[in-house]
């Protein structure tokens, strides 16, 4: 682990526990870059905050959980139930409405309540909610604790699901474009390395769990391997068709008041074709013959 990139730039991560504080930090320009919920990014742009989505954080990686002993076996069974979502401006909220449409249910047939992600497993355990939909590792935590079971993974409901996106302030793009490019390239390279071998994911879980997330590495290993396509770190370019669908649904649900054009909130100019990137993988640990990918 190094403290700076290959070119010497320092990327420091700043951990938050809920999205409201991230939003305030971006608005007040106490921070120029962050991973936030996709519809929240759209909403910030709609309200005049000069930010752009430049890349995705991952694809899939969200799970719809119900209590372990719940009789619910499919989405229709959630009718009349209380389900927690991480935020009104989350794509999990959009997904629940997309599923309600698909299953021919009215938008008020499931009661959706906002809860900060870390509180989802405890709320399910206490019985105050019937289920929750949130990004990992909070679903896996309930699974490992024996209090919840996955009803659906996003890969089975909305393949290639987008949850968090990387946004940067326009001033940063204008003033330090090369730094944004370096960050995006770094995420692309990390993602390719992560999806290359399960052994890489296990190594990453150890480092991230201990030094960044401050979560049990075994929990993260579970998330990254059970099943391996529970979350993906490749195909992270922001695509117009994906965001147009989110925008349409968000407006239909009333989460966003106005429709924005893709170019108003996304800057695709940082997405380099993968074959043009200098991966520099030779400097990273390689899978060994003695310890093949599990």
């Amino acid at each position: 682990m190094t403290t700076h990139s290959e070119t010497g730039s320092v990327f420091a991560s700043r951990k938050f526990s809920e999205f409201a504080t991230i939003k305030e930090s971006l608005i007040a320009r106490r921070m120029d870059a962050s991973f936030i919920l996709a519809p929240l990014a759209m909403q910030l742009v709609a309200s005049g905050v000069p930010i752009k989505i430049v890349y995705l954080g991952h694809r899939d990686g969200t799970t719809l959980m119900v209590a372990k002993d719940s009789p619910v076996t499919d989405f229709a069974g959630l009718r009349g139930k209380k389900i927690a979502i991480p935020n009104r401006f989350s794509n999990q909220n959009v997904l629940m409405h997309r599923m309600m449409k698909k299953w021919g249910m009215s938008f008020d047939s499931i009661k959706l309540v906002e809860l900060p992600p870390p509180e989802h497993p405890t709320a399910l355990a206490s019985g105050s909610i019937d289920g929750y939909i949130v990004g990992e590792p909070f679903p896996a935590q309930a699974e490992l604790d024996g209090i919840g079971r996955p009803l659906y993974f996003t890969k089975d409901m909305w393949p290639g699901f987008i949850s968090c996106v990387l946004v940067v302030r326009q001033e940063l793009i204008d003033e330090q474009r090369e730094l944004v490019q370096e960050l995006v390239d770094g995420i692309a390279k990390s993602g390719k390395w992560l999806d290359e071998a399960l052994e890489h994911r296990m190594d990453a879980a150890e480092i991230v769990g201990k030094h960044f997330y401050f979560q049990d590495p075994e929990l993260l290993k579970f998330v990254l391997s059970k099943p391996p396509d529970r979350v993906k770190y490749t195909s992270l370019a922001p695509l117009k068709k994906d965001f147009d669908e989110i925008m349409e649904l968000a407006v239909e649900m009333g989460v966003l008041k106005e429709r924005l054009e893709f170019e108003q909130y996304v800057d695709t100019s940082f997405v380099a074709p993968l074959e043009t990137l200098d991966w520099g993988f030779e400097s990273l640990p390689q899978p060994t013959a003695e310890a093949p990918a599990k």
Binding site: A12, S13, R14, K15, F19, I22, H58, F138, Q215, V231
Partner: peptide
């Protein structure tokens, strides 16, 4: 030696570009 290298670089007027990136420990 990494820290010494940093001190020398600062003496020579080179400043690292830094960027703080916010996140929530959730996918």
């Amino acid at each position: 030696f990494d820290q010494v290298r940093e001190i020398v670089r600062e003496w020579l007027g080179y400043k690292r570009k830094t960027l703080e990136v916010g996140f929530i420990p959730v996918t």
